[in-house]
Simulated scan of single mutants.
Amino acid sequence: MQVQPYLFFEGRCEEAIEFYRNTLGAEVTALFHYKDSPDPNTIPPGSEDKVMHANLRVGDSVMMVSDGLCKGQPGFQGFSLSLSASSDAEAERLFTALGQGGQVQMPLGKTFFASSFGMLADRFGVSWMIIVAS
């Protein structure tokens, strides 16, 4: 059994996919646009070229993403994605890259439970926790 996040970017999914490819090295393993649907009734008006569904492989994990109903601004609240880095240097690189255009919630630093830990919301509003367990 696995739990996999499914994030709805409400019209900014292609931008998010490119951002995660560049920052996390995400690999796109599936990508379907609304225009690929055999049922035209499932296509939100004007959204033919938007992402209906995509899978992104990040390390050993899969993140599913979509433009959802393409209503504009995505809303990500009540959760964070936790990203385990292999070293403090890697944590710093990831934290800096994910934070571009985003907002730092807790600066990356040493804690009693990790050699590096920090929290931020990326430019799409997705909350991330970056950790290097001690």
Rank of each mutant, 00 (worst) to 15 (best):
G59L: 09
V104T: 15
G99Q: 06
G75T: 11
K71P: 03
Q103H: 11
F76K: 09
F117R: 02
V3I: 15
G125R: 12
T96H: 11
Y6Q: 05
G118R: 01
C70K: 08
F79L: 10
E14G: 04
F79C: 12
Q105I: 10
R123M: 05
L98D: 00
T96S: 07
S66G: 02
P44H: 10
S87Q: 09
R12N: 12
A91M: 08
Y6V: 10
F9Y: 11
D39K: 01
F112V: 00
Y6M: 08
G11L: 01
R93V: 14
Q2K: 15
H33F: 09
G78E: 05
F117Y: 14
S86K: 13
Q77H: 11
F117D: 00
V132G: 04
G78V: 04
G59M: 11
A16M: 10
W128N: 02
K71H: 11
G68D: 09
T29D: 00
V28R: 15
Q103C: 14
D67R: 07
S80E: 05
A30G: 06
L98H: 03
C70E: 08
L120N: 06
G75A: 14
I131S: 12
K35H: 10
E27P: 00
P44Q: 08
F113W: 15
I131V: 13
G68Q: 14
R93F: 07
I131W: 01
E48N: 05
V126S: 13
M64D: 06
V51K: 00
M106W: 07
A89I: 04
I17T: 09
M106K: 14
L94A: 12
V104P: 05
V3R: 07
G25A: 10
S80W: 07
A16P: 05
S116E: 00
T111I: 02
P38D: 15
N55P: 07
E15I: 09
L24I: 06
F79W: 04
P74S: 15
F9L: 01
